[in-house]
Amino acid sequence: MTRRPRRGAGAAAASAVALIALSGCSGSDAFTPGDEPGATITVFAAASLTESFEQLAAEFEAAHPGVEVALSFGGSATLASQILEGAPADVFAAADEATMQRVADADATAGEPQVFATNVLALAVPAGNPGGVTGLADLADDDLAIALCAPEVPCGAAAATVLDAAGITAAPDTLEQDVKAVLTRLVLGEADAGLVYRTDVVAAGDAVEQVEAEGTDAAVNAYPIAPVGRAESATAREFIAFVRSDAGQGVLADAGFGAP
């Protein structure tokens, strides 16, 4: 909502430039499309994208003076619900395709969703592995404190796929509503093991370790991105292009994401 008046101000600035340009008898190419001065775009991104999108936004702003990228992170499903309720987002980056499809089905996307990254689960433990976890089978151990995502959310669906493929019935102590909550349990040492995305292990630094385990790659999560909202924004399209560029992909790879 806040960006409308700003865009009005931008338009006023543009016509002022046009007037000067007219009196200067010059063309209008001094003002290229997508280069709206003072434009703000709002990006809704899945919680697992937090660190990489903060960096991407900073780099994008640096390359586009005057453009501001407002970021809102959360569970993909929550963000989708907010968008469907009319939250003022320009770009939506989800952690799974099903959630993006919900938004697309409601005609809330302003362009075709495109996969820009993939992520696989990792068996994660607190630093030092206090529970002595060695493989996925340990997730069925009643004596260990196990944190997983709830099956209703994307990371939980992926966990279910991985556990089914491995033939394991997990004994979770808590089913969190997003993957960062699972990670927090591990960082604080409240849980002995959990399934989080590989990127989360990278993001958590030294506080969390990954246990190399067979079968964690049974579920590959594809991350789609799409412009959303009624008014199509050139800056939004440009941001999406930047995420998918080599520079953007480099940032994502550093964070532990796989290529699309």
């Binding site: 569970g75 499903a77 619900s81 944190a147 959310v153 102590d173 808590t174 089913l175 969190e176 509503q177």
Partner: peptide
């Protein structure tokens, strides 16, 4: 949700269930 977690029948109270249901 911060302290107790969220597990059906053990720690998932109505407000926690409501928040989770909002996702799906």
């Amino acid at each position: 949700i911060t302290f107790a977690g969220s597990l059906p029948g053990v720690t998932r109270t109505l407000p926690v269930a409501s928040y989770l249901a909002l996702q799906s």
